[in-house]
């Protein structure tokens, strides 16, 4: 019997596909829709200490395989989030709480405020490429900052901690090891890339109101595959591969590079809310054809092979 069930950080997932943070994670209603469309788990849109308006529109657009966004971490802040997510146990799949901050203390404050929300894991993105004060622009992606923030978060919660890294750092394995050493339970390998920029040549103005933004979509898959492959053997904790996964083939490829679970976000744009069901079916079809019974037979095989 073929199965793509996954046991990831103690979460029993019907499949390894996790809704990536920032996409359709605003409310219980939106995440329920994604769960109904076959996601193994969902991640909320990141929450900060204070309410954030984010950038003006346009915040998102696409050119073929390239999708760009500069939303700027808009979120209602931790006090409102407590109300918004108070009944996440109504969602039929595990829910990951994504928490952002500019300083280590901010992450801790949000985690403490949301301690009664029934999250199954906490994700800490240190990798946004286009929001001042956060992620790469705030230097959170260095090995030192990653260690410091992970260590602080580790003290604040008993839930599994996922550290979300950027592909845009030169010393990826060192950063991943720093997170592991500080007590992270998993690495989410991949945020949007860039930042990039496109200009509307008729007006001469950048299309994104923030001028620059993160790049996602099928175009970035090769970079994610390389990053997952790079860190796979340098750490013992499992990896979520996020960035570009749109089809079952992409999903299998990411697992061969070493991912145990998979983030899907922009894939919704390309294939609809049911992209999760579609990818899961495509993975099963492929496994059937190749005679694989479980995902364990696939994860990291490229390394050994």
């Amino acid at each position: 019997m073929i199965t793509i069930k996954s046991d990831f950080l103690g979460m029993k997932l019907s499949n390894p596909l996790i809704l990536a943070s920032g996409i359709m994670g605003t409310s219980v209603g939106s995440m329920n829709k994604i769960a109904d469309n076959g996601a193994g788990a969902v991640t909320i849109k990141s929450i900060s200490k204070e309410e954030r308006l984010g950038h003006n529109n346009p915040t998102m657009f696409s050119f073929g395989d390239v999708f760009m966004n500069a939303v700027g971490y808009s979120n209602p802040g931790m006090i409102e989030a407590k109300k918004e997510f108070s009944d996440i146990d109504k969602i039929g799949v595990p829910v990951i709480g994504s928490v952002i901050g500019t300083k280590a203390e901010d992450f801790v404050a949000v985690i403490e405020e949301l301690k009664d929300i029934k999250f199954d894991a906490i994700e800490i993105p240190l990798s946004c490429p286009h929001t001042p004060g956060f992620g790469v622009l705030a230097g959170q992606g260095t090995p030192e900052a990653t260690y410091r923030i992970t260590k602080a978060v580790r003290k604040a919660t008993r839930l599994p901690i996922i550290i979300k890294l950027s592909a845009n750092v030169p010393d990826l394995t060192i950063v991943a090891k720093a997170a592991e050493k500080a007590g992270a339970d998993a690495i989410n390998m991949g945020n949007t890339h860039g930042p990039g920029m496109r200009i509307d040549i008729d007006s001469g103005k950048p299309i994104l109101d923030f001028k620059v933004g993160g790049i996602s979509g099928p175009a970035i898959t090769p970079v994610t595959v390389r990053c997952v492959y790079d860190i796979y053997q340098s750490i013992k904790i499992p990896i979520i591969g996020t960035g570009g996964i749109t089809t079952g083939r992409d999903a299998i490829e990411m697992m061969m590079a070493g991912a145990s679970a998979l983030g899907v976000g922009t894939g919704i744009y390309y294939r609809g809310f049911d992209v999760f069901k579609k990818i899961a079916n495509e993975m099963e079809d492929w496994m059937k054809k190749k005679g694989h019974l479980s995902l364990k037979e696939i994860i990291g095989v490229t390394y050994e092979g």
């Binding site: 920032g22 996409i23 359709m24 994670g25 605003t26 409310s27 939106s30 849109k45 529109n57 915040t59 998102m60 939303v71 808009s74 922009t266 919704i268 744009y269 609809g272 809310f273």
Partner: peptide
């Protein structure tokens, strides 16, 4: 609205 095409959840 932000995206207009069913991605952001706004």
């Amino acid at each position: 609205m932000k995206c207009g095409f069913g991605v952001c959840g706004q």
